[in-house]
Design a protein around this nucleic acid. Structure first.
Lengths: 298, 298
DNA sequence: TTAATAGTGTCTCTTAGACAGTATTGC
DNA sequence: GCAATACTGTCTAAGAGACACTATTAA
């Protein structure tokens, strides 16, 4: 087809003469929440080590937010998708190439970067403990894996005159590495009005995190918690071989609550395949090792 | 705190001297999938009218994709968030201000806009039939509400040598307005590999839709279908007063399958409040009218 | 009276929660 | 034997699916 527009141009002619207007454009960054799971120090030779959910952060070496901790990320370059930018950043920061990657949300609050107009298209990556090496931060920047806790602090509900309500959920986000202890409070506000409705995040308190990264982290944890229940997403955090108790520990550390063993095993039965291998030299009965069942989830 | 960076500048000094580099930046558009539900023509005075899921599209009046149909949307302006841009576009296209609005996904494939580098941050809006008037398209552009169907065409699963599989789900998207009939086939590819995993959309066939909007629409329908089952999202498509049968019809048209009455009523019981009003002059037993229960969902 | 929808009762099957009981190892 | 974890069996409660039955209106 050779449709012509008002100026009598075909599409090819139009594109040849097209010049991008000099409207102001935003920079777009891909920022990543990279999760992994590690073992805490075991108390006794008999006890199993506890699992910890950890996240990679990088200490800023320049303004703005000099000295604060930020998510790994960087600007999306021309001829690159946001996914590719995220994968590239991940490779640069961790050397890893082949991981679970999922887009989270695009944050565009004005002033979220004090330098200039920057939107953040955020991603979540899951790394299993086989791939995991603490060699993060090959470049000059200081990097560390922070232990994550995210817990409901308070809940408030206000009724509106016109009908509907505003519910505010305040979560405390705690991130701790060797020397560092970061704390933030993120409020999730759910507005329900007769016609409209919506959810918004706000940072209530923030000690040590750069930009609006506390929001992005909150968003990632909530996505992870949600998906754990109805997908096999948690298996991306597991090594090749693992016990069902380890898998349960990972679920528990993500959800921040204890689960019942029997029910848990029924639930994940289809997500794993048993092997003929067993753990050895634990101070107790050996445990069968499982593999991820790639056919499992639907 | 007055931390100084390598150049001996404080944060304030840094920001004062900061000039945005002239790296190439993308344009960012907010594109919207605006859903509503309408009544089809009833066959007889006795029969209830069927519900139809509809979506607003705008015929392009210029290159590229001249004459094709596109989602309402536009570029995000400086000092505006993507949410605000979406809300502004919605107001411009429909005159509506107070609606359910939710961010979907950010699409950034290179070449998705043949003119220049454009990312699309997509949103879904739900409009109830009270607010709905077919006055869309006050400006010069031609606009129409298209009836939506989205149905699984075929499913393919290929096992990989390294372990894992690639599953391809092909959906047929049909959009129809008075004279117009648009058809596209969108493939959702789920890749499951031992370490990585991911989902991607691709357009397999496309007749009449501009840009990659078939993907965005597919994404919106899948989000809507998913959320219908575990939130009260469908109630944003309902007028102030409605019958439970109407609500069920809306669920059915979204999910594209029939539901059982008794089970449905149990499920939505907490999402609605009964009123003392009844339908009148239907050719059969009157039906109790309900309101949305704003306390209902969690 | 009739053609339609409105609305309820109840049986079954599946799943999640709870808990108790048995099994097996290293030291 | 002991201190742990490994693993299974079973009761119960809640929910989804299926279906049948009764109720009520306008024409």
């Amino acid at each position: 087809m050779d449709l012509k527009d008002r100026d009598g141009l075909t599409e090819r002619e139009f594109l040849e003469q097209y010049r991008a207007g000099d409207f102001e454009r935003p920079s777009v960054a891909a920022d990543m929440v990279i999760f992994t799971v590690t073992d805490a120090q075991a108390d006794s030779y008999r006890k199993l080590p506890e699992k910890e959910l950890r996240m990679l952060l990088i200490r800023r070496g320049g303004h703005p937010f000099l000295g604060k901790w930020a998510l790994p990320g960087g600007f999306v370059r021309p001829n690159e998708t946001t996914e590719q930018a995220a994968a590239r950043e991940l490779r640069e920061e961790t050397g890893l190439d082949d991981v679970y990657l999922e887009q989270l949300y695009t944050f565009s609050d004005i002033g979220r970067d004090p330098r200039t107009w920057v939107m953040s298209c955020s991603y979540m990556a899951l790394i299993n403990s086989d791939q995991f090496q603490l060699k993060a931060g090959d470049d000059a920047a200081e990097a560390a894996w922070f232990k994550v806790t995210y817990r409901l602090l308070r809940e408030r509900k206000e009724l509106l005159e016109e009908g509907g309500y505003v519910k505010t959920l305040e979560y405390e986000l705690k991130l701790s590495a060797e020397e560092e202890e970061l704390t933030a409070v993120v409020a999730r506000t759910v507005t329900a009005r007769p016609t409209s409705a919506g959810t918004a995040y706000a940072i209530v308190a923030n000690d040590g995190l750069a930009f609006d990264h506390a929001k992005i982290i909150a968003c990632a944890i909530e996505r992870l918690r949600g998906k754990v229940n109805y997908t096999d997403i948690a298996l991306h955090l597991m090594p090749q071989l693992f016990t069902l108790t380890e898998l349960q520990q990972v679920y528990e550390v993500i959800l921040d609550r204890e689960l019942l063993k029997a029910a848990f095993r029924r639930k994940v039965a289809d997500l794993v395949t048993e092997t003929d291998h067993y753990t050895e030299n634990a101070g107790h009965r050996p445990s069968r090792l499982y593999r991820r069942n790639l056919e499992g989830y639907r």
